[in-house]
């Protein structure tokens, strides 16, 4: 999947240390390097505290690394001036875990989705904005009229659709999804995964998809990276990693995942 095209994102030697009270340090990220090709979905899997969310935040320039670089289309994000960085934000957007916390309860859905449109270089007319929001709402399987409603009128899955619409409205080149389906019911999770696959087929989405759930990663990712304690243990095509894990930790993770295999045992 990667191969000959130039990578869209390159993460080079990324480390992030947090100072804890008492003079101790937490090494949240330890020399992580990876790249994402255009049109690829890279899954990152790991347990809590493995650094996967820190990685997401740094790639989204919401936090700065202690050392290392993030290159987006060859440009170092952290060498850009704040103004230039703000200008580039239209190219990378994020979907969050908690669909109840990621939408401002006081804003109408249309306003929420339109929020990132301010990142576009051109000033859009009110009518143009409304048109794009309506089209986006339908793109994620909601109705254009839903824009006038407020977040609390929607279920968790519908809210996550709204969050996806917001992340895609500027037609970003890269979308980072941080546990985007973890707070959802199983059947809703399956719908959202279907939607993401569908949007990818239609718009050629490039994604960094972060999850603790191997099953979800397998459903959506072309390649997967396994993280533990801030380090990227292994990375490779999803099927290869799942079928033939190189690392002992990956094997443990795969074995711990509850599956219906237990049915094979006599009850």
């Amino acid at each position: 999947m990667s191969g000959n095209r130039a990578p869209l994102v390159e993460v080079i030697g990324l480390s992030r240390r947090y100072a804890l009270p008492g003079g101790r340090n937490l090494q949240a990220l330890d020399n992580v390097s990876l790249s994402v090709a255009p049109g690829e979905i890279l899954g990152i899997v790991g347990e809590s505290g493995c650094g996967k969310s820190t990685l997401a935040r740094i790639v989204m320039a919401l936090d700065r690394p202690t050392s290392g670089n993030v290159l987006l289309e060859g440009d170092d994000l952290f060498a850009l001036s704040p103004r230039e960085l703000a200008r580039r934000r239209r190219n990378f957007q994020m979907i969050f875990q908690d669909p109840y916390g990621s939408l401002d309860p006081r804003m109408s859905v249309a306003r929420i989705i339109a929020e990132p449109l301010r990142l576009l270089p051109e000033r859009l007319s009110r009518a143009e904005k409304a048109k794009r929001v309506a089209a986006m709402l339908e793109d994620v399987g909601l109705r254009a009229e839903d824009g006038a409603r407020f977040p609390h009128e929607f279920s968790g899955g519908q809210r996550q659709r709204i969050a996806i619409a917001r992340a895609l409205i500027t037609r970003p080149k890269l979308v980072v999804a941080d546990e985007a389906t973890s707070a959802l019911d199983l059947t809703v999770q399956a719908q959202i995964l279907r939607l993401l696959r569908d949007l990818r087929a239609r718009h050629g989405l490039t994604m960094l998809f972060i999850s603790h759930n191997l099953g979800v990663i397998e459903e959506i990712a072309d390649r997967v990276g396994v993280m533990q304690a801030g380090r990227l243990l292994e990375i490779g095509p999803t099927a290869a990693v799942m079928e033939n894990p190189r690392e002992e930790y990956t094997r443990r993770l795969l074995a711990a995942e509850p599956t219906l295999d237990f049915l094979e045992q006599p009850a």
Partner: peptide, 30 residues
């Protein structure tokens, strides 16, 4: 009912949906 039976011969559409919503990995053996 017995778990094996519920998963193998679900009586309701909802149970079928629930099983279908599982990631492939988890329902492979089924």
């Amino acid at each position: 009912g017995p778990t094996v039976q519920v998963l193998r011969q679900p009586q309701s559409d909802y149970t079928r949906q629930l099983i279908a919503a599982l990631p492939r990995r988890s329902r492979r053996s089924l």
